[in-house]
């Protein structure tokens, strides 16, 4: 009798905790869905061909956001161009070449710490180093460098994981054929790790596209209808544009639809990038068999 009641109590507890788990999964999904729906619902009205292809007009209360879209694309591409080679080579050094010891451990801790630094700190660092000290001024180059450093830990982390995931037997097979270490890395290890490196990196890219604080002092213009002609030009950027319209504009209430439209474009951009990552990963996973 006592046994039976204790069993019932166990089932009750189990049911309760499973319910809790289910509930939290549901809450997260609902929150995400609600957020996306809210943005979509409020922003869709603002989207038109003109909105995507024209510069803002009338003190940014009318017109489009094309310069900001373009600016974000430039900044993000610049950040990738800087962070991807640097991140991949660092990861190769850490996993393939460096003797595993205290030095490598210190570097790894450093990289992880970098990942936890608030993005505004990166913004101030970029302002101090690139804008002021190196005298690049507020421009695409400074912004891309700052964003590049911001996403570097993500890319190093993803690359390290991907490199570690390449079976040791591949390296051994290649080296045993009298192939040098560098050629082994270049011909066997890197191609096998590439899908992992790319997916991890693309997720970092999504983050770079959405950050406001790092570009606030280093690249983003309050308003410029002129499109950039070199990497030393200031640009508008989607996240900063939203920030400006929502807090510093002269017609905050009147520009709500434009604000939501811009948010929708930014979210759409990031989702597309993430989607690409997911597609790359799943197609390569199907091809890979080890």
């Amino acid at each position: 009798m006592a046994l039976q009641s204790s069993m019932r109590w166990r089932y009750l507890k189990e049911g309760f905790f499973f319910g809790l788990v289910r509930l939290s999964a549901f809450v997260i999904t609902a929150a995400l869905g609600g957020l996306l729906f809210y943005i979509f619902f409020n922003g869709l009205g603002a989207i038109s061909w003109g909105f995507l292809t024209l510069p803002p007009t009338d003190s940014m209360t009318k017109g489009g956001i094309m310069p900001a879209i373009l600016g974000t694309v430039y900044l993000t591409l610049g950040a990738i161009a800087i962070a991807l080679p640097l991140g991949i080579t660092s990861a190769i050094y850490l996993t393939e070449y460096a003797r595993q010891g205290p030095l490598v451990r210190v570097i790894r801790i450093g990289v992880n710490c970098l990942a936890g630094v608030p993005s505004i700190v990166f913004g101030l660092f970029g302002l101090g180093l690139f804008v002021v000290f190196l005298q690049f001024g507020s421009c695409i180059l400074s912004g891309a460098l700052t964003l590049g450093i911001l996403i570097l830990p993500t890319i190093i982390g993803a690359s390290e994981e991907a490199l570690k995931g390449v079976p040791q037997t591949f390296r051994e097979a290649s080296l045993a054929l009298g192939v040098s270490k560098w050629q082994t890395i270049y011909r066997i290890v890197l191609p096998s790790a590439m899908p992992g490196i790319l997916t991890g990196s693309i997720l970092g890219i999504g983050r770079a596209a959405g950050e406001t604080a790092p570009i606030m002092f280093t690249a983003a213009a309050f308003f410029t209808a002129k499109l950039p002609s070199s990497i030393f030009d200031e640009v508008m950027a989607l996240p900063f544009h939203i920030y400006v319209l929502a807090t510093a504009g002269t017609h905050i209430e009147a520009t709500r639809p434009i604000q939501f439209g811009t948010v929708l474009v930014l979210v759409g951009l990031v989702l597309v990038v993430d989607l690409v990552a997911i597609i790359i990963r799943s197609t390569i996973r199907k091809r890979k068999r080890w």
Binding site: P167, T169, F170, E172, A173, S174, L175, A176, L177, G178, I188, S192, K288, R289, W290
Partner: peptide, 15 residues
């Protein structure tokens, strides 16, 4: 290693 080749315990062809 060019002159002394090796075959491993588990077959390890490249993908």
């Amino acid at each position: 290693r060019r002159r002394i080749g090796m075959v491993f315990q588990k077959p390890n062809p490249f993908p």
